[in-house]
Design a protein around this nucleic acid. Structure first.
Lengths: 191, 191
DNA sequence: ATCCCCGGTTGAACAAGTTCAACTTTTTTG
DNA sequence: CAAAAAAGTTGAACTTGTTCAACCGGGGAT
């Protein structure tokens, strides 16, 4: 039952009536994404938001110089969206790619926008979700400024050991904002 | 009329009835903060959220090694809060200090929490506000990973020329995540 | 089974940013 | 106004992280 995971996730964020939760989640459709396939490609306009039931995704952007930068990884129980493109219907700066065969629940934009209006607790759900995410992003920036790449690497693998297992060093390096060569040297220095 | 600026700011975020806006903003109390005084100190628990009417603030944290890191500056028309401490009532990691004599509108925690429940459009207001802020923080992290300090400095002064004028180089350096000595060398190289 | 492509490793030269210390200039305060 | 404090500058030595190029090894596609 993939919907149980979603419902549980919502329950951990806000108190919401059984009825509201059922109605809200009923708009999500399951979708299978094969390894290496894209849920969203840079340049396209995002029409959906997603919740990962199984598998793992990488959300990254490629800049003018061709550098890949990973914003975050989304494994089971994580949300997946390009807020900017979804909200403003502008071309996305993000790529969302499956790192392994994955299962997601998808809600489309039209449905979500109308649910904001018809189920007030959905506003609260996302207010709380964004609020939590904002704190995490602020912490990450400070961590980037105050800690060395080595420290950030250690904290990352300690904090997300299950996710780290699914990732190549290239992915981790692009998340930490360093080259994969340098990450290799960091790992060597840790022995 | 300081409340007009606040009302205008809200109107730019969401559509809200005259009545709701009036009721919501009526809970904000004006407060004067003198230059160098603190609206919040690291270690204390935040009981308020604020909106800057006049002046300028710096929101920063001091880490274990004694490094100051500036999360953001808040001049007129900006919101000012420690979301984490306000939400979870945990000791704050942030300092909020006035860089010049300033005027803010303050809402206390009890009032805000009850307004979330009594005025549904307040949920929406903050959902949209946090959503926008989240996009900005994601962009800032990518910018930090993909651009040099020199590039980030130039973009900062171009994007916020009016704020940059009020800041010392130390403040700007701690926002960019570099030492003030290095910022001095960057500025020299730009002549 | 084979090929090859991709991920990871290593080294050397280099660039970006830090540290510390000494000094000058500007701002604050009594 | 004077004195002191804070902000900014500069240089030299150092650390952190990058770039490029060469090499190794294993897993996927055919």
């Amino acid at each position: 039952m993939p919907y149980n995971l979603l419902k549980q996730n919502i329950n951990n964020l806000v108190e919401m009536s059984e009825e509201d939760i059922n109605r809200f989640t009923s708009y999500f459709k399951p979708r299978i994404i094969k390894k290496k396939d894209f849920l969203l490609r840079q340049g396209n306009v995002s029409k959906f938001e997603g919740f990962v039931v199984e598998g793992c995704f990488r959300v990254f952007t490629i800049d003018d110089k061709g550098n890949e930068n990973t914003l975050y990884f989304a494994a089971s129980d994580w949300w997946l969206m390009d807020i900017d493109s979804f909200t403003n219907q502008t071309p996305s700066n993000l790529n969302i790619q499956a790192l392994e065969d994955s299962k997601v629940l998808i809600i489309n934009r039209t449905d979500k926008l109308s649910l904001y209006q018809t189920i007030p607790s959905v506003e609260k759900l996302f207010r709380v979700m964004f609020q939590k995410a904002l704190v995490a992003w602020q912490r990450r920036l400070v961590s980037n400024h105050c800690q060395t790449a080595k420290e950030r690497y250690q904290i990352f693998v300690e904090t997300y050991p299950h996710i780290a297992l699914k990732l190549t060093d290239k992915h981790i390096a692009s998340y930490l904002g360093i080259t994969h060569e340098f990450l290799s040297k960091i790992k060597k220095s840790l022995n």
